[in-house]
Design a protein around this nucleic acid. Structure first.
Length: 217
DNA sequence: CGGTTTTGACCAGCGC
DNA sequence: GCGCTGGTCAAAACCG
């Protein structure tokens, strides 16, 4: 499924994954090193949507490599590592940086996830990110609708809804109670629209093309 | 002025 | 039924 994948599968669950184009994740650490906030989106696995999955990311400045691990809450001992991916790039230049992991492929069809949503199955993914930011820029526009102190965590949990039209996607953001250098982000549901960032990107070549063709006329 | 955030109140689910 | 907990509402405040 992953072709020339660098995934080291330690659990069969990983083989079930597909990529949901409705979900993109932006690496805030890469973003902090550059001013080009929206150049490094990548599509991330969301096929464990009837499970809760934690992703753990670490970024190394020394070799510009990036590691991502997914953990399954189904494991009774929590956070058994089920996959690891690594990719590298040159972060010194935003234009040459390749933030796309070679082991994850785009899947244009998210109909399976949509069907699950229709059947009332919750589409949930959560991941941990080591970041000082209070919220990750994932390309979507969110409206905060609540903040709560929860028993399991000394840190506050923030509640957000997608602010795009009738989109029902929600997300929760809280600092990890065990290690507050990590941010835990949980998404629920599937966006029924493109990310504003994707729309912005798709428009760029069109504008450029029109400018060229009109000027050469 | 319209969209977003804040924050206390309210609600639903669960265990006892 | 009651209390606890997490999630949501909604009015007021805030902000660009």
């Amino acid at each position: 499924m992953f072709g020339s994948s660098t995934f080291q599968e330690t659990n069969n669950i990983i083989s079930h994954q597909t990529i949901n184009p409705n979900f993109s994740f932006h690496d805030p650490l890469i973003n902090m090193n550059q001013d080009h906030g929206h150049n490094n989106y990548q599509d991330f696995d969301t096929s464990f949507l009837d499970q809760l999955v934690y992703g753990d990311q670490e970024y190394s400045n020394s070799n510009n490599s990036y590691n991502a691990s997914l953990y399954s809450q189904n494991n009774p001992f929590m956070q058994q590592e089920i996959s690891t991916s690594t990719y590298s790039g040159n972060s010194s230049s935003a234009s040459s940086f390749d933030a796309t992991p070679t082991n994850i492929h785009m899947n244009e069809n998210s109909s399976m996830e949509v069907e699950k949503e229709k059947k009332g199955e919750k589409h949930v993914i959560a991941f941990r990110t080591k970041t000082q930011r209070e919220i990750l820029d994932d390309g979507y526009k969110w409206r905060k609708y609540g903040k709560k102190k929860v028993k399991s965590n000394t840190n506050l949990r923030n509640y957000y809804k997608c602010s795009s039209g009738d989109c029902k996607v929600k997300k929760k953001v809280e600092r990890d109670g065990n290690d507050s250098s990590y941010l835990i982000t949980t998404y629920e549901g599937i966006h029924n629209h493109e990310s504003p960032f994707v729309i912005y990107c798709n428009e760029m070549p069109t504008v450029s093309f029109l400018n060229v063709s009109t000027s050469s006329w």
